[in-house]
């Protein structure tokens, strides 16, 4: 695998909702194994951008090309729906803020993890179950919970289950939308620990949307700050947070509550 080339190339991506701007003129490259945080206040276009990149939304203009496993770049918005959906369930993952959006709440945890395997053609029950147990273990869910429905899980467990469900096919790129939103701080800390470990172990590339700068600091190497649909500042996470250059970033960083 050639690591000298980016995994994802995004160029002047814009999405407007009628006359309103979702996001405008976003350009960046994402490299294999890199975690990029997209920060900004509510309504700044973070989620719109993420949905466009993950092809859940079609952008109004601009392009994004993704380097497939065979090394060729494919223009995301010109792929057929079948190809995009195949990419979504094999090479990509999407972690929703609300686990109920990303999980099947009425089937067991094991089936939730196994679904992607069955979707790509695994037809051996024993093997699927063994993989599911392995992945539940990796996200610190006991093997005795494999036949429980996610309804019976706490918020933190559901989020970890969602992560396992996404990572089971060994994706190369994971999109995360506020992965720690709505969790209390101690649970958040453990989840961040876990995510950090998984991302570095598996060499995942990730795009993490968050309004929580501390989460961005912990998880990401690079950061994009958005305001009113545009990228106002981009750079290494530590540099942006320790030495913010744009007035808006300075405002954002200085607004963090100190304990």
């Amino acid at each position: 695998m050639n690591d000298d080339l980016p995994l994802l190339r995004v160029s002047s991506l814009s999405k407007s909702y009628g006359s309103r701007i979702g996001c405008a003129d976003v350009t960046f490259d994402l490299w294999p194994g890199e975690v990029l945080a997209v920060v900004g206040e509510s309504g700044s276009g973070k989620t719109t951008l993420l949905n466009c990149l993950s092809t859940r939304l079609m952008p109004t203009s601009g392009t994004a090309s993704y380097r497939m496993r065979d090394g060729t770049f494919r223009e995301l918005y010109r792929m057929s729906e079948a190809e995009r959906r195949f990419l979504m369930r094999t090479d990509w993952g999407f972690v929703h803020q609300n686990p109920a959006d990303g999980l099947r709440m009425n089937v067991s945890a094991g089936a939730n993890v196994g679904e992607r395997l069955m979707a790509v053609g695994d037809r051996h029950y024993g093997r699927i179950r063994a993989t599911a147990i392995d992945w539940l273990g990796r996200v610190e869910i006991g093997a005795d919970r494999i036949d429980d429905e996610p309804r019976a899980f706490s918020g933190g467990m559901r989020q970890r289950l969602q992560i396992a469900r996404n990572l089971v096919t060994g994706p190369r790129l994971v999109f995360m939308d506020e992965p720690t939103g709505g969790l209390d701080v101690s649970v958040q800390a453990r989840l961040l620990d876990l995510l950090r470990g998984l991302v570095s172990d598996l060499g995942l590339a990730a795009i993490v949307v968050t309004h929580d700068l501390a989460v961005a600091r912990l998880l990401s190497q690079r950061m994009m700050v958005m305001k009113d649909g545009r990228v106002v500042e981009t750079g290494l996470t530590d540099r942006v947070l320790d030495d913010p250059r744009e007035p808006y970033t300075q405002l954002l960083v200085s607004s963090i509550l100190q304990v």
């Binding site: 099947r104 089937v107 679904e115 979707a119 790509v120 699927i128 036949d147």
Partner: peptide, 14 residues
Amino acid sequence: EYGLMHVKLYEDIA
């Protein structure tokens, strides 16, 4: 996309 059909059978066995 018929992976879901096997999810149902998986649930049965589980």
